[in-house]
Nucleic acid binder design. Structure first.
Lengths: 387, 387
DNA sequence: GCTATGATTTATTAAATAAATTAACATTGA
DNA sequence: TCAATGTTAATTTATTTAATAAATCATAGC
């Protein structure tokens, strides 16, 4: 309840500027007249605000639109190449680094595999080399770097920009924001992977025109995000979404959290590997996926089993949140139909009918790139919020 | 994404008016100068807005405060007796009707028992007679009725003001808002019981100074509400919070929803009755409660068992939402310590430690009156939103 | 009397709306 | 074919709203 922002002229302008940027992002190229109509603003106000945005290089005038019996509309769009963003995804099996433009289009990217033993210092070195190579390979980026967006799995402290705990590598309390800001001399922003995914869907994917939706990221863990009016719901200590540790059984395999019955142990990629192992397949998740594609019955059974539980977990989300949309993301979900379809079917079975039938369940639109694009949005969000 | 409200002078004023009313509600009696300081508004703005509110009879000048070396501050407070509100709670075992003032203080109330066979028409008759008696008994209310707030269990359509489905009575699609508006010729507002409870806590209880909190109402069913910046999160079709039908087991007793494993079947008052029956006690929940107070071991065991599962369910909420506060309400929670304490203990056991330790779990402050007070807030909210 | 605090008044300012104006077209009819 | 007319888009100018800033009035303590 601190930081009270009362109504003021600045707030008024900020609201309208935000709305105008949003509509240009979502529906651009678009004319000033149409902006005015859809936002219930006067043409004069739109002219004034767009003039400032053009001045600040955020948007540009592009082509002329079709006339419908009068002057041709001048279409406005985001100035995609005014600045560039470096985006980093620290996943459990690799670090992906990319350069994106202002529309979060990926210009170039590098993926480096990691091992569970990879230290934080090694990871920083990987990032440094990747970014330097990307900048060298893309001349036009030089001197036009707007900022760095970082998405990491595990627990992060968004405000302080620290990785609190990274389960796959065992890193604790790493001040990655400061490290990268010093390295590249631009502002950096950190959030957890599932929230980056949610942001990407909210800005560019299925969540574009939806007030409220749920994102679920299934990897070795299972995390969720709730996006409400383009805002992430964060909880009290930034810990919203530890869905993988909610219980769907009174016993079960021991979870990393020390308890039993966690969703994570029944339905994650880790669970797929366990089920496969029980059936005699000693392989990682991607290998099980390959086998399932080749018709290996044991692999299919393992994946189906995990997807059944995942569906039950999704049903729980539907019953709690009554969402209009659930977006699923993660390596296996992205590419394996047994897993995705199985989960959807199972969700139908366990959710309340009235709530299930109004809820769309989709894959993340940009699939493997969703998180990297979302990390870029972390930077854009900050820019657009502070105009 | 319709109904876009751009920044405008009206919005600016509405924001500030809302902030000022809120602060007078929360911290009143309070002087204009202090309002200005806490809200970062200029004294002149506060003078202007408070003048209008005084003019509209929403607030009044009360006593003079202590001087700290200058002119004595004129304290402002809500005009508690300017209007009155009728509040109705349709619970599973009775209908409670009350008259409240503008501070949601209950002036008078009537409770009428119901049976599962009670028809909607009978219920409306009960309400009619109760309200008429309340008005007769409280002369000053005459002609000063602001509106009617209705809280009902089951599924409601807030926008249309309809009871969609009332599981305990079997009512379907009853247009209670229209019925009551015609009967008393004032506006009526409907919401589900747990949201009324959440509103009450948000305005007058533990949620007063908290940005975000969870409310859980345990009766024959289990519902939750998420309050975010004084706003209820409603989901897509107003169905947020069907927590009682989330699964915590792969089997279990058949639930009213047609599935097995629902929280409701393990931890609600209905579950307490079932566990008691299994131990040879054939009694309703309140009777089991009485027995437990008299030291009946079987009753205590039954309650403890339900509370253990309830705690697991609460742990799931903690893991998902990372709340700062969870408010528990419902007949048995209100009065039975085995149930409440057992649930808190069990939540500690099953929740992630980092998230549990920042979360307070409390009983609803106004206990049995929480819902009736919250129903009044439905009316107040509408008034304060439309000044 | 002086100084500090609370509340109000008056003047100013920011940023919206309203209305008029300019720009650039399409349509129509002689 | 092209001038007249009507439309739509964008901008300019005047006005309005509701904020802030600064001065003033009202009380108080010392």
């Amino acid at each position: 309840m601190d930081n009270i922002v009362p109504g003021s002229f600045q707030l008024m302008k900020k609201i309208n500027t935000g709305l105008i940027i949003d509509i240009i992002r979502l529906k651009g190229p678009i004319s000033r007249a149409e902006i005015a109509k859809t936002l219930n603003l006067t043409p004069a106000t739109v002219t004034n605000i767009t003039a400032e945005l053009i001045n600040k290089n955020i948007i540009v005038e592009s082509d002329l639109g079709q006339s419908t019996g009068g002057r041709k509309p001048i279409l406005l769009k985001i100035n995609a190449e005014s600045y560039y963003i470096v985006s980093i995804h620290i996943g459990s099996t690799g670090i992906r680094t990319a350069i994106l433009n202002m529309e979060s289009k990926i210009l170039d990217k590098i993926t480096v595999k990691t091992r569970p033993e990879t230290t934080y210092e090694e990871a920083i070195k990987i990032i440094k080399e990747s970014v330097e190579r990307l900048i060298t390979q893309n001349e036009k980026v030089k001197g036009k770097l707007l900022g760095i967006g970082i998405a990491a799995h595990g627990i992060v402290d968004t405000e302080k920009g620290k990785i609190v705990f990274s389960p796959n590598y065992g890193w604790k309390d790493k001040d990655i924001r400061t490290d990268l800001e010093r390295m590249f001399d631009v502002p950096a922003f950190l959030d957890r992977d599932v929230r980056a995914m949610a942001l990407s869907e909210s800005w560019y994917g299925a969540g574009k025109y939806v007030d409220q939706f749920i994102s679920v990221k299934i990897g070795y863990g299972v995390g969720v995000a709730l996006t409400n009016n383009k805002q992430q719901i964060r909880g009290y200590t930034d810990g919203f979404g530890e869905f993988g540790h909610t219980k769907i059984a009174f016993d079960g395999p021991l979870c990393s959290c020390g308890n039993r019955g966690c969703i994570e142990t029944f339905s994650s990629e880790k669970a797929v590997e366990r089920y496969a192992a029980e059936l005699g397949i000693d392989a990682d998740c991607m290998a099980v996926h390959e086998l399932s594609l080749n018709g290996d019955e044991r692999a299919i059974t393992a994946i189906n089993k995990a997807s059944e539980y995942l569906g039950l977990a999704i049903a729980n989300l539907i019953n709690i949140f009554n969402p209009r949309l659930i977006v699923l993301g993660g390596d296996l979900i992205d590419i394996n139909d047994y897993y995705f379809n199985g989960a959807v079917e199972s969700a139908k079975k366990y959710a309340l009918t009235d709530l299930y039938k109004v809820c769309e369940i989709k894959r993340a639109e940009s699939k493997g790139d969703a998180i990297i694009k979302g990390a870029a949005v972390l930077v854009l969000e900050n820019l657009f919020d502070n105009i």
